[in-house]
Simulated assay, not measured.
Amino acid sequence: MDKYGLIGFPLGHSFSRNFFNEKFENEGIKAKYINFEIPQIEDLPEILASNPELKGLNVTIPYKQKVMAYLDELSPEAKAIGAVNVIRVSHKGKDVVLKGFNSDVIGFTRSIEPMLEPAHKKALILGTGGASKAIEYGLKTLGLETLFVSRTKKENTITYEEVTPEIIKEYNVIVNCTPLGMYPKADTCPDIPYEAMDGHTILYDLIYNPDETLFLTKGAKYGATTKNGLEMLLLQAFASWEFWNDTDNM
């Protein structure tokens, strides 16, 4: 029986495990998805050695960067972003070949693209952590200019204090890549001038719990179009399956 799985630490509730095991059951696929909670990335070779039926892995915190040292190949997106969250495991003779991909890009771009109109040329990315690089890469592939917002001043980055109503008008696609507003701290949100938003503003939140964060609620009050991260999560899962089974790109 083929195996797929998730590596990370710690692993609590796993969307991926539930999603894929349900998919396998519904579609009559003889496969199983397992959570591999490994306290250190050095445990990866042991997982591979003791599970020869493994065909693919998802990678979560804190190993999206660290796992790259163990891979034989990287997709162009994964190389540009510097993070991997999907690994295809294939066998060539006695050798195990690992190729890394980044499904954040494909999940995000497929989710936000239908919302974009000609007036959307510039985007603000709130936060500079984990997923923000993939979001930047995705927005650029869709033809948008990007600017990061952070608590501290860095290159191609402004601080929250510098986000004026004029900037909100100019950068009318705003993506929240921070944990602000995530359950259980649902009463928090990024500190930006929501009152400058209007019907041309798109607010996209990577958070999907709660369904509507305070960030989205405040923007919607002024006419912004909003979307949470649930569809992106589903599209990432679809993309993982594509990467694992794409024989054209072996």
Rank of each mutant, 00 (worst) to 15 (best):
L147I: 08
L147C: 08
L147S: 05
L147F: 05
L147P: 09
L147D: 02
F148I: 07
V149Q: 06
V149C: 06
S150W: 02
R151V: 03
K153T: 04
K153E: 14
K153I: 10
K153H: 14
K154L: 12
K154P: 04
K154G: 07
K154M: 13
E155M: 07
E155D: 15
E155H: 06
N156Q: 14
T157I: 10
T157E: 05
T157R: 05
I158M: 09
I158P: 11
T159I: 13
Y160F: 15
Y160N: 06
Y160M: 05
E161T: 13
E162V: 04
V163R: 08
V163G: 11
T164W: 03
T164Q: 08
T164N: 07
T164G: 07
P165C: 10
P165I: 10
E166F: 07
E166H: 05
I167D: 01
I168P: 07
I168N: 01
I168H: 01
K169T: 09
K169S: 13
K169Q: 15
Y171C: 09
N172M: 12
N172S: 14
N172L: 11
V173E: 05
V175G: 06
V175E: 02
N176T: 12
N176A: 11
N176F: 11
C177H: 02
C177P: 08
P179E: 05
P179Y: 07
P179V: 11
L180G: 07
L180K: 12
G181L: 11
G181C: 10
M182Q: 15
M182I: 15
Y183C: 04
Y183T: 14
P184D: 03
P184Y: 07
P184R: 06
P184K: 04
K185P: 00
K185L: 15
A186D: 12
D187H: 13
D187M: 10
D187S: 13
D187N: 15
T188M: 10
T188P: 00
T188S: 12
C189L: 08
C189Q: 14
P190L: 08
P190E: 02
D191H: 10
D191R: 13
D191M: 11
Y194L: 04
Y194K: 01
Y194E: 03
Y194C: 06
A196P: 12
A196G: 11
D198V: 11
D198K: 06
G199Y: 05
G199I: 01
G199R: 14
G199D: 14
H200P: 00
T201F: 07
T201V: 08
I202L: 15
I202R: 03
I202Y: 04
L203K: 09
L203T: 08
Y204M: 13
D205N: 13
D205R: 10
D205T: 14
L206S: 03
L206I: 15
Y208R: 11
Y208D: 09
N209M: 12
P210D: 04
D211R: 12
E212A: 00
T213K: 06
T213F: 08
L214A: 04
L214M: 14
L214C: 01
L214N: 01
L214R: 12
F215C: 02
F215D: 02
F215V: 03
L216G: 03
L216V: 02
L216D: 01
L216N: 00
L216P: 01
T217Y: 00
K218P: 04
K218G: 02
K218C: 03
A220Q: 13
A220G: 00
K221T: 12
K221E: 13
K221Q: 14
